[in-house]
Simulated assay, not measured.
Amino acid sequence: MCLKGDKRQHVRLQMTHGLMADLRIIAIRNEPVKTKPCRVLIKDLSPNGLSFLTILDFPVNSRYMLQLELDIPHLKLELSGQVRWRMREDNLYCYGMMMTKTPSSRCSLLYALNHLLLQQSPTQSKIHKLYRTMSAFH
């Protein structure tokens, strides 16, 4: 199972319908690089981080930066961050990534999370209201 027992500031939205993303390395030791994208499966997503599955074996350190490109209906997101943890899950690796964001990318991400919540659980109005409230403050 793809879980990490740390305290989180935000609740992560579990992806129930298999959200795919293109992953690439964008910097090593603060030097920009361009790598070919690799498809990964997003497991969960929050305003501060996410977890994903891939066949790639990344180290857990802050010497490189990853970028994930997600296509959510009506919105394309580019999220950057660093790997904070890694776990084996069968023949794959599950990673936890903490994102680095600008205020505008945070706003876009909160909009996307609210949209995904509406799609996945239309009857959970309290959760939708919470994310709308968070979006208004950022």
Rank of each mutant, 00 (worst) to 15 (best):
M98C: 10
K43W: 00
R132M: 14
R106S: 10
S80M: 00
M98Q: 15
H138M: 14
I28C: 02
L66W: 09
T16Q: 15
Q14D: 07
N48C: 11
I127W: 03
S104I: 05
H17M: 13
F137Q: 14
L70R: 10
I42C: 07
N91Q: 15
C94A: 14
M97P: 06
L41P: 07
E31N: 12
D44M: 04
Q82I: 00
K4R: 11
L109H: 05
I25K: 02
L50I: 06
R88D: 09
L50A: 09
Q9H: 13
S105M: 00
V83C: 03
F137E: 15
R12I: 11
G81M: 08
I127A: 15
H128K: 12
V11Y: 15
E31K: 13
D22M: 12
L68P: 10
G81I: 04
K126Y: 12
P59E: 05
S135Q: 15
S108H: 01
L19G: 05
L70D: 04
D6P: 06
H74N: 14
L117N: 04
S104G: 05
A136N: 10
S46E: 07
Q67P: 00
T102I: 09
N48S: 12
R63L: 04
K4T: 09
P73H: 07
T100R: 11
R84C: 01
M97Y: 04
R29L: 15
L109V: 08
S62E: 11
V83S: 01
C107N: 10
N61Q: 02
D57I: 06
L13M: 03
V40A: 00
P122A: 06
L53C: 05
L41E: 04
S46W: 10
L109A: 01
P122D: 03
P73L: 03
S125H: 14
R132Q: 14
L13D: 09
L75F: 07
C38M: 13
K129E: 11
S46M: 08
L79K: 09
S46T: 03
A27V: 09
V83M: 03
L70E: 10
I42W: 07
K36R: 09
G49N: 06
S135A: 12
T100N: 08
M65T: 08
K129L: 15
L70Q: 00
Q120N: 04
K43C: 11
G5A: 13
Q14V: 02
M65W: 07
Y95C: 10
M97V: 08
L66Q: 06
V40N: 05
G18Y: 06
L3W: 07
F58S: 03
P73V: 04
L66K: 01
A112F: 08
T133S: 13
T123H: 15
S46N: 07
H10I: 08
L77S: 07
H115I: 02
R8H: 05
L110H: 05
A136Q: 13
R63P: 01
L41G: 09
F52G: 08
L130I: 13
L41M: 12
Q9V: 12
K34C: 11
A27N: 01
S104F: 01
P47G: 13
K7Q: 15
